[in-house]
C-alpha cells in the first residue's frame, strides 16, 4: 500500500464558498488523494485561534452547513473529502436531510470532533450504513487498550475502500489545533509504533504539524501528516493551495 503523503485541511467558506471548487480542483491536480473540509461551527472547542477565526469568518459570510454541502454538489474534480465538524450542526439538519445533501458530493466520511462512539448510536449507524463512516480519533490521553477498542467500534472497511474511509486520526499532542512551535513529536512517534503493532489501517497524524522536518518524521513511520492551521493561514494571506503547501512536499 502506497503511503498517502499529505492530508490537508481547509475551512469551507473561508475566504468564500465560491473559492471552494477552485481549491478542491487545485488540490486534486497536486495529486492529493483526500482532504479534510471543515464545516464551520460557532463554538469550535477543539480548535486553536487560526481555525476559530476561519470558522467565524466563514459563518459571517454565510457558510451554513446546507450551503457548504450544496456548494459541493456535483463536484467531481476534487480529492475525497472528509467532513470535519462538530455534532450540533449535523444533528439540527437531521440524518435524512444530511444524507440527501451528502449524496451528490465528494464527501466520503465524517470526522465529528465531539462525538465519541456510542453517544448517538442510531445517527452514526445510519450514516455508516449509507457509506459515511466516522473517522476514529485517538488522542495522547487514549490508552492503548482504549485505542484498540475505538478502532474496533469504527472499523476499517478494508483495502478496497479509499483512504478517507479507512484511516484513523492520531492527535499529535494535547490541546487544540494550531501550528505548534516545536511540538515534541517523540510521544506521538512512539504511539505510532504501538498502533502499527495492533492495526494495519492507515494512520494520519495531526495537530501542531507545519515544518517539513516534522512532516518527514511522521512519514518515516508510515503515517500521513495532516496540515491544517498552517495551510489555512497561508490561504488567508492570499496564497494558492500549491504555494501554501509548497514546503510540505519536500
Amino acid at each position: 500500500m502506497a503511503l498517502n503523503p499529505l492530508l490537508p485541511f481547509i475551512m469551507a467558506g473561508d475566504p468564500s464558498l465560491e473559492a471552494l471548487p477552485g481549491y478542491l480542483s487545485e488540490a486534486r491536480a497536486l495529486g492529493l488523494e483526500a482532504l479534510e473540509l471543515g464545516l464551520p461551527h460557532s463554538d469550535p472547542i477543539a480548535d486553536g485561534p487560526v481555525l476559530q477565526a476561519a470558522a467565524h469568518r466563514a459563518i459571517a459570510r454565510g457558510a451554513t452547513p446546507r450551503r457548504v454541502l450544496e456548494a459541493l454538489s456535483g463536484l467531481t474534480d476534487s480529492p475525497d473529502l472528509i467532513l470535519f465538524t462538530y455534532l450540533n450542526p449535523l444533528l439540527q439538519l437531521g440524518v435524512e436531510p444530511l444524507l440527501r445533501l451528502l449524496e451528490p458530493t465528494p464527501v466520503k466520511s465524517l470526522l465529528v470532533v465531539d462525538l465519541p462512539f456510542g453517544e448517538e448510536p442510531a445517527f452514526e449507524a445510519t450514516l455508516r450504513g449509507a457509506g459515511y463512516p466516522m473517522v476514529p480519533l485517538l488522542a495522547p490521553t487514549t490508552r492503548l487498550e482504549r485505542a484498540q477498542a475505538l478502532l474496533g467500534t469504527r472499523p476499517d472497511p478494508g483495502p478496497e475502500a479509499p483512504f478517507a474511509q479507512r484511516f484513523a486520526y492520531v492527535v499529535a499532542r494535547l490541546g487544540v489545533t494550531g501550528a505548534g512551535q516545536g511540538t515534541d513529536l517523540a510521544p506521538v512517534l512512539k504511539r505510532l509504533d504501538a498502533l502499527k503493532a495492533i492495526s494495519d489501517r492507515p494512520l494520519a497524524v495531526g495537530f501542531g504539524l507545519s515544518d517539513p522536518a516534522s512532516l518527514r518524521a511522521v512519514r518515516a513511520l508510515g503515517a500521513t501528516p495532516v496540515i491544517g492551521s498552517a495551510l489555512v493561514a497561508g490561504l488567508t494571506s492570499g496564497s494558492s493551495i500549491r504555494t501554501a503547501l509548497s514546503r510540505c512536499f519536500c
Binding site: 470532533v113 465531539d114 465519541p116 453517544e119 488522542a139 490521553t141 482504549r146 492527535v171 490541546g175
Partner: peptide, 29 residues
C-alpha cells in the same frame, strides 16, 4: 469498551446529558 462510565450519564425521558467530548478529554473525564 473496556473502560466505561459507572454512573448514569443521561437524564429524563429524552436522555439529555451524555458525554459529547473530544477524545483528548475522555480519559480525564
Amino acid at each position: 469498551m473496556t473502560d466505561a462510565f459507572a454512573l448514569p450519564t443521561r437524564f429524563g425521558t429524552q436522555a439529555l446529558g451524555g458525554c459529547y467530548a473530544p477524545e483528548t478529554l475522555m480519559q480525564p473525564l
